[in-house]
């Protein structure tokens, strides 16, 4: 992989130089949190921003979009409005989340809406320092080797820039004069030191060893009823999860005409209607069953299908669920380490 150096003070210049690659998006403060927003003023770009409310999936599968426009002749694909974008400030966990979405959406029966946006969205990753809710080390997603175009690692006054794709290489070439090819021994030492220091910054105590087996053993446990009693069935955990990919499809019709759109929006397996079939039978009528589905899918079933959990340790469920049902409390409870649900 091509690796270069960029002076931190040249970041703005660099982002300006690559503006032809698409609209620039980066995490910007929203209340007490951050959200990926379109950047109009480069001074708003903060490479040290914390986790965003919504993960990168919002770029590849927007919360709501039209799949087709239809009229009496049939359905007409709506892909035209997808724009080129450059997303700066993606964390390793989130890029790992994209790699999981790639598996779901870009392999067998690939999803053209996802692929079109994925192709047109350049990802610039940035190394980060874990806060008290991060547990990406436990899910092996604290670093990332693919899935991005460029990745900026902390290096004192500089960034170490990893070029991860052909588009990334083009972006570097568009700002060639700002990059330094010479990585010194001192730089490498600095990089190692920083990595070691970062390792020590993980504060959350969570152990996900043998989770698939633990689910098998605890699948009929009474604790699911307790979790179900508490769950607000608000769907927020799924909305903010980088790997939750469920969606619903609805048709909207224009007034007085046989025209309209077929729209797709994020859905969640924790919502009442999720497994309801026509005729009224609900395969998961209870919140407990739906909670069980959410957690087994993340921490057990996905491993069966793809060989790794679909949790990337980003901590969003922890910072989002109003009633503290999250990977940490559920895992700890199932493991018998702590009792969160009485």
């Amino acid at each position: 992989m091509r690796v270069l150096k960029l002076r931190k003070k040249d970041l703005k210049k660099m982002l300006e130089k690559i503006s032809s690659f698409g609209e620039l998006w980066a995490p910007v403060k929203k209340g007490d949190k951050f959200a990926f927003q379109k950047i109009d003023n480069l001074n708003d770009v903060d490479p040290n921003a914390g986790r965003t409310i919504l993960p990168l999936k919002k770029f590849m599968v927007p919360p709501r979009f039209s799949m087709f426009r239809y009229d009496k002749d049939g359905y007409h694909e709506q892909l035209g409005e997808v724009t080129d974008r450059v997303v700066f400030g993606a964390h390793a966990c989130d890029i790992n989340g994209l790699l999981i979405l790639d598996k779901v959406f870009a392999e067998e029966f690939s999803d053209p809406y996802y692929i079109e946006r994925r192709k047109r969205t350049a990802i610039i990753g940035v190394s980060c320092v874990p806060d008290e809710f991060c547990f990406c080390k436990e899910t092996n997603t604290d670093t990332v080797d693919e899935g991005y175009d460029l990745f900026f690692s902390e290096l004192g006054d500089d960034f170490l820039v990893w070029v991860g794709s052909s588009k990334g290489d083009d972006m570097v070439r568009a700002a060639e004069e700002l990059f330094d090819e010479n990585i010194s021994v001192k730089d490498i030492q600095k990089f190692i030191e920083w990595k070691k220091w970062r390792e020590t910054q993980f504060k959350m105590d969570i152990d996900l060893t043998a989770m698939p087996d633990i689910f098998e053993l605890k699948i009929d446990d009474k604790v699911w009823e307790k979790i179900g009693e508490k769950c607000l069935a608000c769907g927020s955990c799924s909305m903010v999860c980088p790997t939750c990919n469920c969606f619903n499809v609805t048709d909207t019709v224009a007034l007085g005409k046989m025209e309209g759109t077929r729209d797709r929006c994020w859905d969640a397996c924790t919502l009442h209607e999720y497994s309801l079939v026509a005729g009224g039978h609900n395969f998961r009528g209870s919140r407990a069953d739906r909670m069980k589905l959410w957690y087994t899918h993340k921490l057990q079933a996905f491993i069966g299908e793809f060989g790794k959990p679909s949790c990337v340790g980003c901590g969003r469920c922890i910072t989002t669920c109003p009633v503290d049902i999250n990977v940490k409390t559920v895992a700890k409870t199932l493991r018998g380490e702590e009792v969160y649900f009485k």
Binding site: P63, R64, L232, A233, C234, G235, M239, V240, C265, H272
Partner: peptide, 9 residues
């Protein structure tokens, strides 16, 4: 579904 879903959108 509740308002929270749209709120997260």
């Amino acid at each position: 579904y509740p308002v929270c879903v749209e709120c997260k959108y």
